[in-house]
Amino acid sequence: MPDVHNDRLPDHVIARARTGDRSAFEEIVRRYQRRIRSWLATHCPPGGDVDEVAQRTFLAVYTRLDEYQDGTNFDAWVFTIARFQLMTEVTALRRQADYHSRFASDLISRELERRVEQPDELTEDRLRHLASCLECVPERDRQVLDWRYRENVPVQEMAARSGRSTAAVKKLLWVLRLKIRDCIDAKLAAEGGLT
């Protein structure tokens, strides 16, 4: 999957997609999916289905390609659609009668909403730094992160696998998250991207 952070999408790909060329549209999805999905992952409130919102975003891009004005910023146009799709998801979640009691998240949701206005590139920068920060995590601890985030292993099973108590695994995950967050923040600050 190419990292297309700074790679502008050629106009002819958009033009072909507009005529109904599916392979051209797949090229658009291929180029943007990582950025859109990671951005949505960090802004979609608890209970939201990130990939579903991402799929709806691209389907909206496909059906509204005629509205895109050539020569304007296609990145910004795609992210605007993603923002609208996210807001639709947030509204739908809030309308669920038991949402608040299930996720205790209204306060969280509102804070996430506030952060939607942050630059899109911040998520990409965080993702980039996350990779290098993970390399600094000791191998044994990385294994726990792998179980948690790659395999979705329950905490109780992680405890059994690692010979720790459940509380110790939870504590370890907490500490690792704090360390990784601080590592990412330090790298962003060094680049002047976090004030």
């Binding site: 999905r37 990671s38 992952a41 960090t42 802004h43 979609c44 608890p46 990130v50 969280i108 804070e111 996430l112 952060r115 998520t123 965080r126 993702l127 996350l130 990779a131 993970l134 992160l145 792998d146 948690r148 985030y149 790659r150 998250r177 704090l178 990784i180 967050r181 990412i184």
Partner: peptide, 16 residues
């Protein structure tokens, strides 16, 4: 809480 929630989601995304 939101910082850690976003990191939690980003860790999930990065591992997949």
């Amino acid at each position: 809480a939101v910082d850690l929630f976003q990191l939690h989601r980003l860790l999930g995304f990065a591992h997949q």
